[in-house]
């Protein structure tokens, strides 16, 4: 959606035309669900997060000044929501399974159904499974930066704006993320062609 169309829709919404908001949801939902899905690894949570992002957007529309585009706003919100989601999941496991160190086996991961990851639904093969699992080893911020750069193809400058981080910090997260992926997939690299 170009900037002029978006501005027209935002003006319509401010004039009380709710169909304008529906147009925004329709325009962005596919990308936003996709981003959340890659970040959390399952469709149900991804849809819940995307829904929450749109609800927050609706609440913020009255004060939406258009400093950033709607898509940047949504990317930022979804990324924050997924980071919170990961933090929440990690705390639940720590509290209820008494995991004291990240090196200990995670009961959720041990019990995880590999068929639940989005990659499995679209691509087959051991390498893809390994890649999906390797991405899960990244911290929430590393995963966010890697997803936004590699999958969404956002420039690092824009990622810095989305995540409200310094560009240097974004670069560090990206370097770290790729370093971890290389380490995790070392034995597979010969077959990754």
């Amino acid at each position: 959606m170009d900037a002029a169309t978006e501005k027209r829709i935002l003006d319509r919404i401010k004039d009380g035309d709710e169909s304008g908001f529906e147009a925004l949801v329709n325009a962005h939902s596919s990308k936003i669900i996709g981003l959340a899905w890659r970040m959390v690894g399952n469709r149900e949570d991804a849809e819940d997060i995307a829904q929450e992002a749109f609800i927050r957007l609706h609440r913020s529309l009255a004060s939406f000044r258009g400093d950033s585009s709607v898509s940047t706003w949504l990317y930022r919100t979804v990324t924050r929501l997924t980071i919170d989601h990961h933090r929440r999941q990690k705390l639940k496991r720590k509290i209820f399974f008494f995991r004291h160190a990240d090196s200990e086996h995670d009961p959720y991961e041990l019990a995880a159904d590999p068929a639940a990851s989005p990659g499995d639904q679209y691509l087959a093969g051991e390498a893809v499974d390994r890649l999906s699992r390797a991405v899960e080893k990244l911290s929430a911020q590393q995963r966010a930066v890697f997803n936004l750069r590699h999958h969404e193809e956002l420039p690092l400058k824009e990622i810095a704006a989305v995540l409200k981080l310094e560009e240097g910090t974004v670069k560090s997260h990206l370097h770290r993320a790729v370093h971890i992926l290389r380490k995790e997939l070392k034995d597979l690299q010969g077959g990754l062609t």
Binding site: G34, W37, G119, Q121, A127, L131, H151
Partner: peptide, 8 residues
């Protein structure tokens, strides 16, 4: 080799 997965 990291696939750009776009859930459709």
């Amino acid at each position: 080799a990291v696939p750009v997965i776009t859930p459709e």
